[in-house]
Amino acid sequence: RTSMTEEYRVPDGMVGLIIGRGGEQINKIQQDSGCKVQISPDSGGLPERSVSLTGAPESVQKAKMMLDDIVSR
């Protein structure tokens, strides 16, 4: 199975929601999608934060859908 890494961007203000209490939400995204999700520690003052998604292409797609779902709330 091919693994890929894709850079994705999320609004900086949503990072807390994506990570969740004690990392609960980000762990759920990783478990449900099978994709490794790494959020860059700092946006460098930019409105968006970089997130790197690593996994099989379908896992990366699923993680993106889950991120979009959180961001659109």
Rank of each mutant, 00 (worst) to 15 (best):
R1N: 15
R1M: 15
R1E: 15
R1Y: 06
R1T: 14
R1A: 06
R1D: 14
T2E: 12
T2A: 08
T2I: 11
S3R: 12
S3G: 13
S3M: 15
S3N: 15
M4D: 09
M4T: 11
M4G: 03
M4R: 10
M4F: 14
M4V: 10
M4K: 14
T5M: 10
T5F: 04
T5G: 03
T5H: 05
T5C: 08
E6M: 15
E6Y: 07
E7M: 12
E7V: 06
E7N: 09
E7R: 09
E7Q: 14
E7W: 09
E7A: 08
Y8P: 04
Y8I: 11
Y8M: 12
Y8C: 02
Y8Q: 03
Y8W: 13
Y8V: 11
R9W: 12
R9G: 05
R9M: 15
R9P: 14
R9A: 07
V10M: 14
V10W: 01
V10K: 02
V10C: 08
V10N: 02
P11Q: 06
P11N: 04
P11F: 00
P11Y: 01
P11A: 08
P11I: 05
D12Q: 11
D12I: 14
D12W: 03
G13I: 11
G13H: 15
G13C: 08
G13Q: 15
M14F: 04
M14C: 12
M14D: 06
M14W: 04
M14P: 00
M14Q: 05
M14H: 05
M14N: 07
V15R: 04
V15G: 05
V15M: 14
V15K: 05
V15F: 10
V15A: 11
V15N: 04
G16P: 12
G16W: 06
G16S: 10
G16H: 12
G16I: 00
L17E: 15
L17S: 12
L17I: 11
L17N: 08
I18L: 14
I18Y: 03
I18D: 04
I18K: 04
I18M: 07
I19V: 12
I19P: 04
I19E: 09
G20D: 10
G20C: 00
G20S: 05
G20W: 00
G20K: 03
G20Y: 00
R21S: 14
R21K: 15
R21V: 10
R21Y: 07
R21W: 04
R21I: 06
R21H: 13
R21M: 13
G22S: 07
G22K: 08
G22D: 12
G22I: 04
G22M: 09
G22Q: 12
G22T: 06
G23F: 05
G23Q: 08
G23I: 04
G23H: 04
G23W: 04
E24T: 10
E24A: 09
E24R: 12
E24P: 01
E24Q: 10
E24S: 10
E24M: 11
Q25R: 12
Q25C: 09
Q25K: 07
Q25V: 12
Q25I: 12
I26H: 03
I26G: 02
I26P: 02
I26T: 03
N27E: 13
N27F: 10
N27A: 09
N27S: 11
N27I: 09
K28S: 05
K28T: 06
K28F: 04
K28W: 03
K28G: 03
K28A: 08
K28N: 05
K28H: 07
K28C: 02
K28P: 01
K28Y: 04
I29D: 01
I29L: 08
I29H: 00
I29T: 01
Q30G: 05
Q30K: 07
Q30E: 10
Q30S: 10
Q31M: 10
D32Y: 07
D32P: 00
D32R: 10
D32A: 13
D32E: 09
S33F: 03
S33P: 00
S33K: 00
S33T: 13
S33R: 00
G34T: 02
G34P: 00
G34Q: 05
G34H: 04
G34S: 04
G34D: 05
C35S: 03
C35A: 12
C35M: 00
C35Q: 01
C35H: 00
C35L: 01
K36A: 10
K36H: 11
K36Q: 12
K36V: 13
K36N: 15
V37E: 01
V37P: 02
V37N: 00
V37Q: 01
Q38Y: 14
Q38N: 12
Q38G: 07
Q38P: 01
Q38I: 11
Q38D: 09
Q38C: 12
Q38H: 15
Q38F: 10
I39A: 03
I39W: 05
I39N: 02
I39P: 03
I39Q: 02
I39Y: 04
S40D: 10
P41H: 14
P41R: 11
P41S: 12
P41A: 13
D42N: 10
D42A: 13
D42F: 07
S43G: 12
S43T: 13
S43V: 09
S43E: 10
S43I: 09
S43D: 12
S43K: 09
G44R: 10
G44N: 15
G44A: 11
G44M: 13
G44P: 08
G44K: 14
G45L: 06
G45F: 06
G45N: 09
G45C: 07
G45P: 10
G45M: 06
G45K: 06
L46K: 15
L46W: 07
L46V: 09
P47W: 04
P47C: 12
P47D: 13
E48C: 07
E48Q: 11
E48S: 12
E48K: 07
E48A: 11
R49G: 06
R49C: 06
R49S: 12
R49I: 09
R49N: 09
R49A: 12
R49Y: 04
S50N: 10
S50R: 14
S50Q: 08
S50M: 08
S50E: 06
S50Y: 08
V51H: 00
V51A: 03
V51D: 01
S52I: 13
S52D: 04
S52K: 13
S52P: 00
L53G: 01
L53P: 00
T54V: 11
T54A: 05
T54N: 04
T54F: 05
G55K: 01
G55Y: 00
G55P: 00
G55T: 01
A56S: 13
A56Q: 09
A56P: 11
A56H: 14
A56G: 09
P57E: 05
P57C: 03
E58G: 08
E58I: 12
E58Y: 06
E58A: 10
E58Q: 08
S59T: 06
S59A: 13
V60K: 04
V60G: 01
V60Q: 02
V60R: 12
Q61T: 12
Q61E: 13
Q61A: 14
K62A: 07
K62P: 01
K62F: 02
K62T: 06
K62Q: 11
K62W: 02
A63Q: 02
A63P: 02
A63I: 00
A63V: 01
A63S: 01
K64Q: 03
K64P: 01
K64E: 02
M65Q: 15
M65C: 13
M65K: 15
M66T: 01
M66N: 01
M66S: 03
M66E: 03
M66K: 03
L67N: 02
L67R: 01
L67A: 03
L67D: 03
L67I: 14
L67C: 02
D68Y: 03
D69A: 12
D69G: 11
D69I: 05
D69S: 08
I70S: 03
V71I: 11
V71K: 07
V71L: 13
V71C: 11
V71N: 03
V71G: 05
S72E: 13
S72C: 08
S72V: 10
R73V: 10
R73K: 14
R73G: 15
R73F: 07
